[in-house]
Write a protein that binds this DNA or RNA. Structure first.
Length: 282
DNA sequence: GCGTAGTGGAACAGCGCGAG
DNA sequence: CTCGCGCTGTTCCACTACGC
């Protein structure tokens, strides 16, 4: 498991062209070193092929998961109204105005090869002890010159998302408590980089959906990720309160929620708030 | 530790109805 | 007509949950 950055790109060998070019341009990494087994950068920037869960529609139109063969998409891009990316971040604290992102992870629900993106981020500030205790990400781990800053990661992230995005279709970002936590942080980091969030990025808060479902399903108790995972029998690999395990958990929970809400992919789209809606809140 | 949203309970106001 | 009762809706407040 990489300590700093795992960067997975799908669709042929974008990895060997785009990513290296971006890394060279924006993060100052050498492509030669990058591809050398055992090299320092290789340890940090590694691709991983995963067999993943993809979504497709039931007869009733609800979104449910289905195991897809390695590297194959069961749902064609033309059938999907949007690329759905489940993401999670770890930060140095609660306030997006005062704190920084230290880890970013996402997973493309359509599955297939290299459907995940995960990286540690150099916050350029100390990680408070309470935050480090919560997410096991210490100052020593991320405040190092070899750990990319958000500004380094941003062009790679944008390229990755673009590589996953179907032409003309929006990108639907899903996170737990996205409205109050994840999106304001991401927005703040974009602003720090003087970058614009793409206009076709939409955001859905799974916490809001879970609360909505709870009203109609009395069996649902707490609506935090852990409780929902337990309720639906969804377990995630890896330590809790780290970005990718939480992403994996949400990937398992989200289809259950949409199924419970009888929410179609289009319905999920309608639940999405555009970026400027979140900006009003934050 | 913080900020926000949601929730549940208490308190109150307003209304309708029946009894005297 | 007046009073009392009960129901309903609204408002406020305290508490809880949620993210790290």
């Amino acid at each position: 498991m990489s300590q700093v950055l795992r960067f997975n790109l799908q669709r042929n060998n974008i990895w060997s062209s785009w990513s290296v070019r971006f890394l060279k341009q924006h993060a100052g990494f050498s492509s030669g070193k990058l591809l050398q087994p055992g090299s320092y950068e290789k340890r940090h920037f590694a691709t991983k092929l995963t067999e993943t869960t993809s979504w497709h529609k039931t007869d009733s139109g609800s979104c449910i998961p289905a195991i897809s063969p390695l590297g194959l998409r069961q749902t064609s891009e033309h059938d999907q109204p949007a690329t759905i990316l489940v993401f999670d971040i770890e930060t140095t604290g609660f306030l997006h105005t005062d704190h920084r992102i230290v880890e970013f992870a996402l997973r493309d629900l359509s599955g297939g090869k290299n459907c995940t993106f995960e990286t540690l981020i150099n916050p350029e500030r100390n990680v408070p002890r309470y935050a480090a205790e919560a997410n096991n990400i210490s100052t020593e781990l991320v405040c190092r010159p070899d750990v990319p800053r958000f500004s380094d990661v941003l062009p790679i992230l944008l390229a990755y998302v673009q590589s996953r995005q179907a032409p003309g279709k929006p990108v639907l970002w899903v996170a737990h408590n996205a409205k109050l936590f994840d999106v304001p942080f991401v927005m703040q980091e974009f602003e720090r980089c003087s970058a614009q969030v793409p206009a076709d990025w939409l955001f859905v808060d799974s916490l809001y959906l879970a609360r909505k479902l709870k009203k109609s399903d009395g069996n649902i108790g707490l609506v935090n990720l852990k409780a929902l995972g337990k309720h639906y029998g969804v377990s995630s690999e890896g330590p809790s309160h780290r970005a990718m395990p939480d992403v994996q958990a949400l990937c398992g929970i989200l289809p259950k929620i949409t199924l419970g809400l009888k929410l179609t992919c289009d319905g999920l789209m309608s639940e999405a708030s555009k970026f400027y809606d979140f900006r009003k809140v934050s």
